[in-house]
C-alpha cells in the first residue's frame, strides 16, 4: 500500500531530523532549496509559450479531439507549475504521493458520477420538462 511505504520512508527522514535536533539550532539546516533564477525564467517562458500554443490550437478544427488536446497542454503547464514553482522535485516523497494520490480520488468522483449520468440519461424523457 502506497501509504505505509511512504510513511516508513517519512519516518527515516524524521529520525534523522531529530538526531540533528539534538545538536542545537545553529548552522544551516539545508532544508531550503532556492531555485536558480534561470530555472524560474525558463519555466515562465515555457508556460507562456504553451499558453500561446493552446490559444492557437483552439483555432484548429480538431473535432472531438479538441478537448483532449487542450487538456493535455493544460496538464503539461500544470505539471511545470507543480514541479518547479511548487518545488515538488525537492519535496518529500510523502507530500508528492499524497498530492498525486488525491487525483485518484478526484478521478473516482468524476468517473463514477459521469458514468452514472451517461447511463441514466436515456431514462430521462427528453423535452418533458419546460423551463421556468
Amino acid at each position: 500500500m502506497a501509504h505505509s511505504h511512504a510513511n516508513q520512508h517519512e519516518h527515516h527522514e524524521k529520525s534523522e531530523g531529530h538526531a540533528h535536533a539534538g545538536h542545537g539550532h545553529h548552522g544551516h539546516h539545508g532544508f531550503a532549496h532556492p531555485s536558480p533564477i534561470w530555472q524560474l525564467l525558463a519555466v515562465f517562458f515555457a508556460l507562456l509559450a504553451l499558453t500561446v500554443l493552446t490559444v492557437y490550437q483552439s483555432t484548429l478544427d480538431l473535432g472531438n479531439m479538441e478537448i483532449w488536446a487542450s487538456l493535455t497542454i493544460a496538464t503539461i503547464k500544470a505539471a511545470l507549475v507543480i514541479l518547479f514553482f511548487m518545488h515538488m522535485i525537492h519535496d518529500k516523497p510523502f507530500n508528492i504521493i499524497m498530492f498525486l494520490g488525491t487525483l485518484v480520488f478526484v478521478a473516482l468522483f468524476l468517473g463514477f458520477t459521469l458514468m452514472d449520468a451517461h447511463n441514466y440519461k436515456d431514462l430521462i424523457e427528453p423535452g418533458s420538462i419546460t423551463p421556468k
Binding site: 499558453t51 483552439s58 493544460a74
Partner: peptide, 12 residues
C-alpha cells in the same frame, strides 16, 4: 486557472 482558461474560453 490553467485548466479553467481552455475549458471555458477556448471551446470551438
Amino acid at each position: 486557472w490553467i485548466y479553467l482558461f481552455p475549458l471555458l474560453y477556448l471551446i470551438t
